[in-house]
Amino acid sequence: GATAVSEWTEYKTADGKTYYYNNRTLESTWEKPQELK
């Protein structure tokens, strides 16, 4: 079936920290989303 993983994109900030952005909800988070675990 369809999965929600594709909504999240992993980015890195200029200082090398990783964060996650959800293209559907426009939410961003420092925590790894449940969908990616």
Rank of each mutant, 00 (worst) to 15 (best):
Y20T: 00
E27M: 07
S6A: 11
T29W: 04
K37G: 15
T3E: 13
K37P: 08
A2D: 13
P33G: 02
T3V: 11
K17D: 05
A14S: 11
T9L: 08
K37S: 15
T13H: 04
T13L: 05
S28V: 15
E27T: 06
A2R: 09
K17V: 09
Y20F: 06
K17M: 07
N22F: 01
G16Y: 01
G16L: 01
R24S: 08
W8D: 00
R24D: 04
V5G: 12
L36D: 07
A2H: 13
S6G: 11
W8Y: 02
L36R: 03
N23W: 15
K32I: 10
Y20K: 01
E10S: 05
N22D: 01
T3R: 05
Y20N: 00
A14N: 08
W8S: 00
N22Q: 00
T3L: 13
T3P: 12
A14Q: 09
N23P: 05
N23T: 13
G1H: 14
E31W: 05
G1Q: 14
T9M: 13
R24N: 09
L36H: 09
K17S: 06
T13W: 03
A14E: 11
D15M: 04
K32H: 04
K32T: 08
P33T: 02
R24M: 10
K12P: 02
N22P: 00
A2Q: 14
W8V: 01
K17Y: 07
L36C: 11
A4I: 14
L36E: 06
N22S: 03
K37M: 15
R24K: 12
E31V: 12
P33W: 03
S28G: 11
E31S: 06
R24C: 14
E31I: 11
D15P: 01
T13R: 04
A2P: 11
D15A: 07
T9H: 10
T25S: 03
Q34S: 12
K37V: 14
N23H: 15
L26N: 15
T29H: 05
T3Q: 13
A4D: 11
T29E: 03
P33L: 02
S6M: 10
Y20V: 00
E27K: 07
S6K: 08
E35W: 05
T9K: 10
N23L: 08
T3S: 12
Q34F: 11
T18K: 06
V5S: 13
W8L: 01
Y20I: 00
K32S: 04
P33V: 02
A2V: 13
T25L: 03
N22R: 01
E31H: 08
G16F: 02
K17I: 08
K37C: 15
K32M: 12
T25N: 02
T9W: 07
P33R: 02
P33H: 02
K17A: 06
K32W: 04
Q34G: 10
P33E: 02
E10I: 11
W8E: 00
A4W: 12
A4T: 14
Q34W: 12
T9G: 06
Q34R: 08
T29Q: 11
Q34A: 15
E7K: 03
K17G: 05
K17E: 08
A14H: 10
V5Q: 13
N23V: 10
P33I: 03
T13K: 03
E31R: 05
Q34E: 15
D15L: 04
E7L: 05
K12W: 05
K32Y: 05
L36V: 07
T18R: 05
A14F: 04
E7F: 08
A2I: 13
Y21S: 03
D15T: 08
W8P: 00
A2S: 13
P33D: 02
T3A: 13
V5I: 14
A2T: 13
E27G: 03
V5R: 07
R24Q: 09
V5C: 15
T29G: 03
T3I: 14
E35Q: 08
N23G: 05
N22G: 00
T18S: 10
N23I: 11
Y20G: 00
Q34M: 13
Y21I: 12
T9R: 12
E7R: 03
L26G: 15
E35C: 15
T29R: 10
R24P: 01
Y21A: 03
N23Q: 10
Q34N: 13
T13V: 03
S28F: 15
K12Q: 10
K12T: 11
T9N: 07
N23M: 10
Q34H: 11
T25V: 02
Y21E: 03
E10V: 12
T3G: 13
S28Q: 13
W8M: 00
R24E: 06
E31Q: 08
D15C: 14
S28E: 09
N23E: 09
N22H: 02
S28L: 15
S28K: 15
G1P: 14
T9S: 11
